[in-house]
Structure formats: structure tokens, C-alpha cells
Nucleic acid binder design. Structure first.
Lengths: 361, 361
DNA sequence: CTGAAAGCGCTTACAG
DNA sequence: CTGAAAGCGCTTACAG
């Protein structure tokens, strides 16, 4: 009888309590080992096992040892849900990103999930962009799981469920993007200035004297606005106001070519893309990077994405250090969960020089 | 008193039970609304609310209506964890992919998560590749959350925790890759033959008479083996055995060039890459696609990834239809959860013709 | 059709 | 240092 189920040897068979039978049989599923099984095997009470498990209260060394042995032998894994019903933590956090299919957010989500996982947290990853209904379904699901809190990359769309989530007093941290009106939520994002500064210095050292900037179509994004500001600020300081050009028009298929033409006719020989999807589109459209470069244009893009290392020449980038951003975001969250009131943090952008910046001939 | 907390209006204040006070005050957190609150507001018992909620047993229309009204007004969201303690389902599933940062798996994870979310399930997404310890941490976390089951992209590495997960009788489905020894687990993957057939027909129609195949370095992968088989099979049928060349050597930096050279010297004018990272590496190394094409080589790659639409010319691909693969995987899982015994399913690969295949001059 | 009661697996005062 | 008991939010036989 015992040998028929090695996972539960010695448990319940001597008492035959209805509950044991139930848990052995339900749906043919191998039952989860419970704290009761551990207690029985160690020959002590459930309360004591719990204490040993959590390190609360005094327990004798030998009792503790017996418990650990029993847990080990039974492959006991505590049920977080049951735990969560008494204590308040579910060891569960929701992560909302605009789109995991975007490489940048995939990296971000990975770093966050990884850090959280090491701290014993499970992460629900959801996507906010596609449509608002879907997002609300996700958030409601998370809430029904009683997440301990959430890490969010905020977007324009503040759906009803999202608002509700924010209104709860749960620990929430924003990552990567600022949400204008919500100042009480800690924010972890990157500071565009350091990377921009290095990038423009490099351009200057390569002998360029005029520099252009293409900001993305999303002009209402605080993040993109700040990047543009960083460009104007550093650019003006290094090159003088009259040598700095900014194109903030929507960067669709047709305007791509005209933007570059206009830059060229103004004597611009180098440019910075503030929004990487634009860069990608430009590369695709301009018949490969060669096309852009044939025009004699050096360029730098925000975001250190894989593609930019695969083109020829490779694209110089201003990296947001997404890995660090994610870790820091997760750490800030963990701090909050433990009752801290962390300040917002910034990660420096760094400039990575590659072949797309050439010296002026 | 009531107005001080709009979320909990009318609940508890008239009884002042200790539990209510507790839940209103704990840690300053706005308490979750419970079924008790709903019952109180609707003026009926908890059991009846539960029944209305789950649609079990008879309930009068007006009672049902009153319950719905109360739930609505209080923004009640049932606690899945508590629910899960009585019923068996946690509405939670684990998804293990080799690496979310890989665009292919990001697409896959997205499709799965999306389908599951619509069915009311929360998905824990974890990564298996990086290191085994990390993977085991993730799996153990999931198990402690009592997931209802898991969707897994199996890999060589069968870690201890993964084995344990598999040994449990939980619903598990494999997606995208086969795991040799586990036949009882339903598998949803793609069938390389249809796409390969179309691809080779296109090559033939463009006038090519000899065709090569580069299979990835992972020769022990059943998936990659089957792709190679598909190539050999269709290739031999269409071009004759003597015109079909397969290079299965490891495709590292140096061998890349030599493989293509060898193919060329055999008179091969078109080739198929079985493993997209190889293609990417080849593109990066050969100084852009132009480099490969300068040699007069037409080529096709497995996997419809973004990059292949951005190069010039665009890369013709054999698509695994990852979106459909994900949906089908999730649906198969949902079927299992509901007690079904779904068969393994296959999604047809489809060939997408683009500029990288040219007619022989 | 509805309510009171037991119990899911766990934790935490409360007594020993 | 340890055990018995109550209770977390919910569901489900069991009586009405």
C-alpha cells in the first residue's frame, strides 16, 4: 500500500482519515504533499512544522532538523495560496508591458522576472497595447490572484481596470516611462543626457559640425520629449544653436526620405534617432543601411537592439541599459513590498560607438 | 464612517465584527472586497452568493439579480486563491520557454498568454535556457502556486524540478518541440513538409537545378532532424538525389563561408537554412544579404522573424505560423484542463516568397 | 430555493 | 519549546 505511491509513503495510511483518501484520489491526480503530511512524518504538530518553515518562534534544533528531513523526503512544497490567506503576501506580482513581442520589452520583462524569481516571486506578464479590453481582462485576473503589487510600463491608455489597480494601495512601480499625473508612484527609468552627451561628443570628434534629430511620432510621450530636450540641450552646447536641427514630424513611409533630404540640404552630416522603431523603418526603407550611408550621413539610434548589431555597418546606439533598468525596477518594487518608500531612480544611458558614425571626409 | 471608504460602503459598519475592523485596517491597505461584503449588501447568505457566482444549484432570478447588483456596486473580484482551496483549479498556468528574449518565443508566449487570458487564466512565463538553477527556482515557484498545469517548450535539459513537474499528473502540453521519450504528453508543433514542398517548388520554378541545405548545429533536436528529413525528401523528389546537398556541420563563424563556398563549387545556386539563428549569423557575417547574393545564391530560411522583412532583399521564409501554434497549444491545454485527452496537433508550415529567391540568370 | 456548517492548507496568537 | 484552536475567503454537501 505504501509502496504503491512513493511520494506519500508513510503518510495517512495508518490513520485512514477521509481527508487523506480524498487527496489521494481526487481526479487521479497525484496529491500535493501538505504540511499535515510533513507533521505526521516528523511526528510533531502542524503548528511546529509551520514555525520551523517560517523561522518564527523558538524551536529546538533537533525538531527543526526532523522537520527539514521530512520535508526533504516528501518533496514538500508549501502552498503559497493557503499561506497567502493568513499572511498577506502571495509572492506574486503583475508585470504590465506594452508588448512582449517588442525586443526591448522582452529584455526588460526578462530582467524583471529574473530578479523577482530569485526573490521567490512569481511574475504574471501581460501586454497592454493590443486592446484595452484585453488589458482589463489581464488586470482583473491579476487582482483575483491577489498579487502583492505590480510593475508597470505606463502608456497613454489608462483603462478602467488599470485605474482601479492604481487606486488600490498596493505597491506599484513604474518602469521605463513616466506617467504624467502620477507622482506618488516611484519611477525607474533612464536618463537620456549622459548617453546623448557622449554620442554628440563622438560625432563632434569625427569632425561633423551640423547635427540633426528625428524624434518619434509620439510627441506626447514624456520620455520622448525628454530625449529631444537632451538633444537640444547637448547639441546646442556642443555645436551652437544654428547647427542643430530637429524634425519632429510623424515619421511615416513617405516622410522618411524627405526628412533625410531636408537634413542633407541643410548641411547636416550626422543624425540621431530618438525612437528606435523609426530607425528600423528607416533602415528597411533606405535600402539597407548602405542607402543612408551612401548619402554620407552618419547616424546613431536610441536602444541597443539586436538588429543594430547585425546590420552593416553596425549602428551606434545610445543604450538604455535595459538589463539594469529591469533589475533596478524589480529591486525598487521589492523594497516597497517590504514597507520601504523608495525614491524614483534613474539609470544612465550609455553611448556605444559602432560603424554607423564615420568621420567626415 | 461609511463615507470614509467608498469601496466598502455599507459593509461591516453595522456589525463591527473584529474581522471587519482587521480587514479595513491592515497595513493601511484598502481591503479587498470579500464575498461576505457582497452577501451583506445583498441581504442574503454567503452560500447563496457563491452559488449565484458559480451558477451552481437553483437560485431565484431576483436573488441572482440582487447579487449581481451588489457585486457590481462593490467592484467585487473573487479571490481565486481561496476559491482554489476548495475547488481544484487556480486558474493559473505555467509557461516555460527557452528564452522570451528570442523573438520567436516572444511571439509564441504572447499568443499563448493571450488565448489563456481570454479563458480567465493567468500565465506565469518563465525561461528555461539561461541556467538550470534558475529554471528550477521558477518551476518550484509555480508548483507552490499550485498551477493548474503547464505549457512547455521542452529542451535537452531535463532538470530535477522539471522532471518532478512532469511526474505530477497535471495537464501538460508540449509546444514547438518534441521531447523524445515523452509520448504521453500531447504535442503541438509545426509540420515542416508543406512549407518545404512549396519552397522547393518555388526554387525549381525559378530555374534552379541544384539545392543545398544547412541544418543547425543542434543535430540531436528532433525538430531540426525532421526539417532536414523534409528537405531530403522533397528535394530528392523534385531535383533528384544527385542535386541535393546537405551540410550538417556546426555553423560557426569560420565554417559559414566555407559551407557556402563548397555549395557553390558543387554548382548549388539556392539553399535553405533550417535554423534561423544560422541565417541571421550568415547575414551578419556575409556583409549583409548582398554578400550572399553577390555569390549568386538564392536562399530561404525557416522562421518568419521581423529581421527577415527588414533586410534587402527580404528573406523568403518557411513560416511556422507561430501565432496559430500558440493558440492551438493553449486550446489543447484548455481541453486537457477540462478533462479531455487531446491528441497531438500539427500546424502546417507555409512558404512566404520574397526577394531572396531569384531566377537563375 | 436558501442557510449553517465543515473544511481546503496554512499561520498565529493563546495556553501550556 | 510545543500543541490545540481559530480563522483567511471561498465552495459544497446537508438539511430545511
Amino acid at each position: 500500500m505504501i509502496s504503491s505511491n512513493p511520494m506519500r509513503m508513510g503518510s495517512g495510511s495508518e490513520t485512514g482519515k477521509p481527508h487523506m483518501v480524498f487527496s489521494q484520489l481526487r481526479g487521479g491526480v497525484m496529491a500535493y504533499v501538505t504540511i499535515r503530511d510533513v507533521a505526521r512524518r516528523a511526528g510533531i504538530s502542524v503548528s511546529t512544522v509551520s514555525r520551523a518553515l517560517n523561522g518564527n518562534g523558538r524551536i529546538s534544533a533537533e525538531t527543526k532538523h526532523a522537520v527539514e528531513k521530512a520535508m526533504e523526503e516528501l518533496h514538500y512544497i508549501p502552498d503559497s495560496r493557503a499561506r497567502a490567506m493568513r499572511s498577506s503576501s502571495t509572492k506574486t506580482v503583475g508585470l504590465l508591458v506594452p508588448d512582449i513581442r517588442n525586443g526591448y520589452f522582452a529584455d526588460l520583462a526578462y530582467a524583471i522576472q529574473d530578479t523577482l524569481s530569485k526573490a521567490g516571486y512569481c511574475t504574471f506578464i501581460g501586454t497592454s497595447s493590443e486592446n484595452v479590453r484585453q488589458q482589463d481582462v489581464f488586470i482583473t485576473n491579476m487582482l483575483s490572484q491577489h498579487i502583492d503589487g505590480a510593475i508597470i510600463v505606463p502608456q497613454g491608455e489608462m483603462s478602467e481596470a488599470l485605474q482601479r489597480l492604481l487606486r488600490r494601495q498596493l505597491p506599484v512601480v513604474f518602469v521605463d516611462r513616466r506617467a504624467d499625473e502620477l507622482d506618488m508612484v516611484p519611477l525607474v527609468d533612464s536618463d537620456p543626457f549622459p548617453g546623448m552627451e557622449s554620442a554628440l561628443r563622438d560625432i563632434q570628434e569625427q569632425g561633423h559640425s551640423k547635427v540633426g534629430y528625428v524624434s518619434g511620432p509620439i510627441l506626447d510621450s514624456p520620455t520622448l520629449r525628454e530625449r529631444e530636450l537632451a538633444f537640444r540641450d547637448c547639441g546646442t552646447r556642443l555645436f551652437g544653436e544654428e547647427n542643430v536641427f530637429v524634425e519632429s514630424t510623424s515619421f511615416d513611409q513617405s516622410s522618411c526620405v524627405s526628412v533625410i533630404r531636408r537634413m542633407l540640404s541643410s548641411g547636416v552630416t550626422s543624425m540621431v534617432f530618438g525612437y528606435s522603431p523609426d530607425t528600423v523603418r528607416a533602415i528597411a526603407m533606405m535600402n539597407g543601411v548602405g542607402g543612408v550611408l551612401e548619402s554620407g550621413m552618419s547616424f546613431i539610434s536610441f536602444d541597443d537592439i539586436e538588429l543594430f548589431r547585425l546590420t552593416t555597418p553596425q549602428v551606434s546606439v545610445i543604450s538604455q541599459q535595459v538589463q539594469r533598468l529591469g533589475c533596478l525596477g524589480a529591486e525598487t518594487f521589492l523594497d516597497m513590498v517590504q514597507g520601504g518608500h523608495p525614491r524614483s531612480r534613474r539609470v544612465e544611458t550609455i553611448y556605444i560607438q559602432r560603424g554607423s558614425v564615420e568621420s567626415v571626409r
